[in-house]
Simulated assay, not measured.
Amino acid sequence: MSSSDRELESAIRNLLASRAADSSICPSDVARAIAPKDWRPLMEPVRAAARRLMSAGEVRITQGGKTVGDPSTVKGPIRIVRSD
């Protein structure tokens, strides 16, 4: 895992920690926190970091308010939520 992967995972954790326990974040929130002016290229790396954290049991990835079964196949907007 690269240092940028660890940075993305850390940013997800930090943003979630700064919100209410039942709040979620968008991958774009993470990307904008790291690269405010050039955040779009980070969208897929952020989604990949969220998938790793979901595999580790740290977060859930939701779509339409429901936890996705297989985050590697989900298309469209997602949210990242702390695991229960």
Rank of each mutant, 00 (worst) to 15 (best):
residue 31 A to R: 10
residue 34 I to C: 04
residue 52 R to T: 02
residue 24 S to C: 08
residue 63 Q to V: 01
residue 52 R to Q: 01
residue 68 V to P: 00
residue 82 R to K: 15
residue 82 R to Q: 10
residue 17 A to F: 06
residue 55 S to H: 07
residue 55 S to W: 06
residue 13 R to N: 05
residue 8 L to S: 02
residue 34 I to L: 15
residue 79 R to N: 09
residue 28 S to T: 14
residue 4 S to N: 10
residue 10 S to I: 04
residue 61 I to Q: 01
residue 33 A to S: 15
residue 57 G to N: 04
residue 9 E to A: 09
residue 22 D to G: 05
residue 25 I to C: 02
residue 47 R to W: 03
residue 41 P to R: 11
residue 54 M to D: 02
residue 40 R to Q: 11
residue 17 A to K: 10
residue 73 T to F: 02
residue 5 D to R: 11
residue 26 C to A: 13
residue 25 I to S: 01
residue 62 T to F: 03
residue 74 V to E: 04
residue 72 S to Q: 12
residue 57 G to E: 04
residue 49 A to H: 03
residue 72 S to E: 11
residue 21 A to L: 13
residue 9 E to N: 05
residue 54 M to S: 04
residue 10 S to C: 03
residue 33 A to M: 08
residue 5 D to E: 14
residue 21 A to P: 00
residue 51 R to M: 04
residue 69 G to N: 08
residue 30 V to Q: 10
residue 61 I to N: 01
residue 75 K to G: 00
residue 35 A to R: 15
residue 50 A to M: 08
residue 83 S to K: 15
residue 75 K to L: 14
residue 12 I to W: 05
residue 66 K to D: 02
residue 11 A to V: 07
residue 22 D to A: 09
residue 23 S to D: 15
residue 49 A to R: 05
residue 38 D to L: 12
residue 40 R to G: 00
residue 25 I to K: 03
residue 12 I to D: 02
residue 30 V to L: 09
residue 64 G to W: 13
residue 64 G to M: 08
residue 4 S to R: 11
residue 49 A to C: 06
residue 21 A to H: 12
residue 67 T to N: 01
residue 49 A to I: 10
residue 23 S to L: 06
residue 43 M to T: 06
residue 79 R to M: 04
residue 29 D to C: 12
residue 67 T to E: 11
residue 1 M to W: 11
residue 53 L to F: 03
residue 12 I to E: 06
residue 4 S to E: 07
residue 76 G to K: 13
residue 20 A to K: 13
residue 15 L to A: 09
residue 1 M to S: 09
residue 9 E to K: 15
residue 77 P to E: 15
residue 66 K to F: 07
residue 36 P to M: 12
residue 14 N to Y: 10
residue 9 E to H: 05
residue 77 P to W: 14
residue 42 L to P: 03
residue 37 K to M: 12
residue 20 A to M: 08
residue 46 V to L: 05
residue 52 R to L: 03
residue 43 M to D: 05
residue 22 D to K: 13
residue 57 G to Q: 07
residue 54 M to L: 06
residue 31 A to C: 11
residue 38 D to K: 15
residue 26 C to I: 07
residue 22 D to P: 00
residue 63 Q to W: 02
residue 39 W to V: 04
residue 13 R to C: 04
residue 59 V to G: 00
residue 10 S to Y: 09
residue 10 S to Q: 14
residue 83 S to N: 14
residue 27 P to E: 10
residue 1 M to C: 03
residue 60 R to G: 00
residue 63 Q to M: 07
residue 44 E to I: 14
residue 12 I to N: 05
residue 59 V to W: 02
residue 59 V to M: 02
residue 28 S to D: 08
residue 35 A to C: 13
residue 30 V to P: 04
residue 81 V to R: 11
residue 61 I to C: 02
residue 22 D to V: 09
residue 62 T to D: 03
residue 41 P to A: 07
residue 82 R to S: 11
residue 70 D to G: 01
residue 8 L to G: 03
residue 66 K to C: 00
residue 24 S to F: 09
